[in-house]
């Protein structure tokens, strides 16, 4: 037989979508560079504040709104309160990245499962599940956050809960729509006819085939969450001084555009770079997960 001859040349081990996707992702230059840059930013955010020459909450009265000065160790300058912007920007990265990624993961996890189950089973299940989403949509977000704060006190963990609780709603709707169109496809019928369990069909057929829009939407959710957090902080419901986040730094910097451009440029640069990286990774993932797209 042929395989006796070719044995050892090409292994007959079966591969799956994920192994193939990982191989394709590594071959995608933009995605790899994006991942490396994002890794560096994450590392700087975690380790940076410890390495920075100044603590985040030290106030230097004689150095208010000072331009970047390497001799004094203020690589990014100081803010209107005389605090070192370098340390604060890196520290802010912790909060923004953690919030952005955690809320997005929550939104993907809940939204994909919720939407896929509702769309796949359809009928009454779909009606009940999607009406629940509608009800949550109708709830004013600020009202929801204020209620949480009143009941549980101010707690950074609540921010995660609040942001996660709203961000999965769109995802659920997107995935449900995708699932509705997938459910009519013949390969889903083939799986049903082949005796595959519903849960397995959702996991193996529905979810992987929804991933393209899910990934794109997830990369758009990260900046949304980061900006939403700065809005909450501005209202006094988010992170509080001396802690800070990119969103907070950017909104403060925007007010000092005359005379203190660095206050906007550095935090905004970090946020923009992070988002670029996420977009490249997201694009790479989407392409890697689509075997046809090569």
């Amino acid at each position: 037989m042929v395989d006796a001859v070719l044995d050892g040349i090409q292994p007959l081990a079966g591969r799956g979508l994920w192994a193939d996707a990982w191989r394709r992702l590594r071959a995608n230059r933009a995605a790899v560079i994006g991942a490396i840059v994002l890794g560096v930013i994450a590392l700087a955010a975690v380790a940076g504040p410890m390495l920075a020459p100044h603590p985040i909450d030290a106030i230097y009265w004689d150095r208010v709104t000072m331009a970047p000065d390497f001799a004094l160790g203020h690589y990014f300058g100081t803010d209107t309160n005389g605090r070192d912007l370098f340390a604060r920007t890196l520290y802010a990265g912790r909060i923004s990245l953690a919030l952005g990624l955690a809320a997005t993961l929550v939104s993907v996890a809940i939204g994909v499962v919720w939407g896929a189950v509702a769309g796949y089973f359809g009928g009454r299940v779909d009606a009940v599940m999607m009406r629940a989403v509608d009800v949550l949509y109708a709830l004013p977000f600020m009202f929801f956050v204020i209620l949480l704060m009143v009941y549980f006190g101010r707690n950074p963990l609540l921010l995660f809960v609040a942001l996660g609780a709203v961000s999965w709603l769109d995802m659920a709707r997107i995935v449900r729509g995708q699932t509705l169109s997938l459910r009519r496809k013949e390969f889903i019928e083939a799986a049903t006819a082949g005796g595959i369990r519903d849960a397995v069909i959702i996991r193996r057929h529905i979810v992987p085939n929804c991933l393209g829009p899910v990934i794109i939407y997830a990369t758009l959710t990260v900046p949304n969450v980061i900006l939403l957090e700065s809005f909450l902080s501005f209202l006094g419901l988010g992170v509080q001084e001396p802690m800070t986040s990119w969103g907070v730094l950017i909104s403060e910097g925007a007010r000092q555009l005359e005379g203190g451009q660095w206050l906007l440029v550095f935090p905004a640069g970090f946020l923009a770079t992070t988002l670029f990286c996420l977009n490249f990774i997201g694009d790479g993932l989407r392409d890697a997960l689509d075997p046809k797209d090569r």
Partner: peptide, 24 residues
């Protein structure tokens, strides 16, 4: 078992042939 009129549409585009055949 069932086989279909449109042979390509009956196969999940994101699965390898081995996985498709092994599914049942």
């Amino acid at each position: 078992q069932l086989i279909f009129q449109d042979p390509l549409a009956a196969l999940d585009p994101r699965m390898t042939v081995g996985e498709i055949i092994a599914e049942p």
